[in-house]
Structures are given as structure tokens and as C-alpha cells.
């Protein structure tokens, strides 16, 4: 009889021989060279997320592609997740981490609404601002554990006083806010175009919903032209006082690849 609790429930040494830890890393008593590591790079990834604030709400969009490296592996991955009727989260980066966060947010939503005796007209208590604060804390916690969730996210919706809210959070726990935001490649390619529409907060208070949607669609098109990890089918959501209008199977319209002929300097052409 082994009286030490540490031995209880384990294969007995006198029957099976001493435990062979050689497959374990050195840090755990084994002989393997590499220590246990957490995520060092994302595997299946989504590309840019774009969003723009307008006078009554926010428009947010992301395409439906999940790439495996440079392979366009999954073409029906919805990367905009509706939290409640005040908030939508758009995910870029690792898709499995997105799925983890989606489950986390669903359980948060259940918790928020469980046993609630709030009058129906008071609306959800969790605003987009609250959700963004929570998400950024989750991200910062995970990066502090050296086990980051490999995502860059945009939280779009309404704050607690029902004003348009848009903010960014990423795998480092970094956060910022702006009238227009883009993650990933979009931060280089789409952000300058969006800034033409909304150079500042005052301009976003003047922007109409139609202008905002038009601007986002134009940016999605530019991104498809120039981002090799993108596709022409995308999701787009409009969040305003009336709730969330999420469309998950939109196609790019009026593409024109005429500009492609002008491109010189790489590719197969010899001149």
C-alpha cells in the first residue's frame, strides 16, 4: 500500500515499473529538448475587419474566409458575432481562438440575462463599451499568462447612453478607439479610405447610414483587390438604435480589375 496521496490512482510501480517521464520536457522531469509552449503563431486565420461610425450607429464588415497559411481553406466562416442587440464583435486572426471567444461571450450573455427581472424596455445592460472593456481584460490576462488569444477584434455597437461606439482590442491587450477602425491588412489599405469619409468624430456625427455602408463596401472591394488572403463574399452588420442588422452572405459588386494591367514590378510579366 502506497500511503502517499501522490501515488493514489496511479499505476503501481511494483506492477508496471517506474513511470517513464522521458517524453516530457526537461522542465517536467523528462528528456525532451523543448519546453512546453503556448501558441506561437496562429494557424487558421481570418483577415481584416473594418468598421465605421456614422450618426446613428456603426457599420462593421469582414469577409467569410478562413485561410490555412496562404491556402483559402474555409470559405463560409462567419467572423462577425452578434452579442446582443447593442453589440457586434468582428474577429481577425486565429479562427479557433475566435470560436473560443464566441463561446465565452455566449456564456457571458447567458449569465447577464439569467434570472433577470429587468423591465423589457430597459434593454440589455451590457453595452458595446462594457463588452469591449471585458474583452480587452480577457485578452490582456491571456497575454500576461504568455498564452495569448491570437486575435485582433473590433467591438461595434452602442454605449450605455446609446451613442455609437467602436473600439479595437488585440492579442496584446492593446485598445484604442476611433471613428473608423480596421484590423490587419485593412489598417494599411482601408483605413486611409475610411479616414477620407470620417477624418474626425465631428465628421462621423454627420455621416449617413448609406454613406457609411457605401464606404465600407468600397473598402471591402479594395481589400479584395490587394489582399491575397481575402475573398469576395463577406458579412456586414449595421448596429443602431433599432438593433442589429447582420447580413452574412454579401457579394462584392462592380469589381473592376482594369487597374491590374498597370501593375509592374512583380509577377510574370517581363517588361
Amino acid at each position: 500500500m502506497n500511503h502517499f496521496p501522490v501515488g493514489w490512482g496511479r499505476p503501481r510501480d511494483d506492477v508496471y515499473g517506474a513511470y517513464n517521464p522521458s517524453y516530457l520536457p526537461q522542465s517536467h522531469g523528462g528528456t525532451q529538448a523543448n519546453p512546453i509552449t503556448h501558441t506561437q503563431s496562429p494557424i487558421v486565420t481570418g483577415t481584416s475587419v473594418l468598421a465605421i461610425k456614422y450618426k446613428d450607429g456603426v457599420v462593421i464588415a469582414a469577409d467569410n474566409l478562413a485561410s490555412y497559411g496562404s491556402l483559402a481553406r474555409f470559405t463560409d466562416v462567419k467572423r462577425l458575432k452578434q452579442f446582443n442587440r447593442k453589440a457586434v464583435v468582428g474577429f481577425g486572426g486565429d479562427v479557433s481562438d475566435m470560436q473560443y471567444l464566441d463561446r465565452l461571450l455566449n456564456s457571458l450573455d447567458v449569465e447577464e440575462n439569467y434570472g433577470g427581472d429587468a423591465p423589457a424596455e430597459s434593454g440589455p445592460h451590457m453595452s458595446a463599451k462594457n463588452l469591449h472593456a471585458y474583452l480587452s481584460k480577457v485578452m490582456y490576462k491571456r497575454r500576461s499568462d504568455f498564452n495569448p488569444l491570437w486575435n485582433a477584434m473590433l467591438v461595434a455597437g452602442l454605449d450605455e447612453s446609446d451613442k455609437p461606439f467602436l473600439a479595437y482590442a488585440d492579442l496584446l491587450g492593446t485598445t484604442y478607439s476611433s471613428p473608423s477602425l480596421a484590423t490587419g491588412f485593412g489598417a494599411h489599405l482601408a483605413q486611409p479610405i475610411m479616414r477620407r469619409a470620417v477624418p474626425n468624430e465631428a465628421a462621423s456625427r454627420e455621416l449617413s447610414k448609406e454613406q457609411a455602408v457605401e464606404c465600407i463596401k468600397e473598402c471591402m472591394k479594395v481589400l479584395f483587390y490587394r489582399d491575397a488572403r481575402s475573398m469576395p463574399v463577406y458579412s456586414i452588420a449595421v448596429i443602431d438604435g433599432k438593433g442589429v442588422d447582420l447580413k452574412e452572405d454579401e457579394k462584392l459588386e462592380n469589381q473592376s480589375w482594369a487597374f491590374a494591367e498597370q501593375i509592374r514590378g512583380y509577377g510574370t510579366q517581363t517588361v
Binding site: D117, A118, H125, M126, K129, N130, A133, Y134, K137
Partner: peptide, 10 residues
């Protein structure tokens, strides 16, 4: 700290 909102009294 977590949600950036004052807690509900209920």
C-alpha cells in the same frame, strides 16, 4: 474594472 460600469443595485 472588468466591465467599466457601476454595478446594478439589484
Amino acid at each position: 474594472l472588468t466591465y467599466d460600469r457601476p454595478i446594478l443595485l439589484s
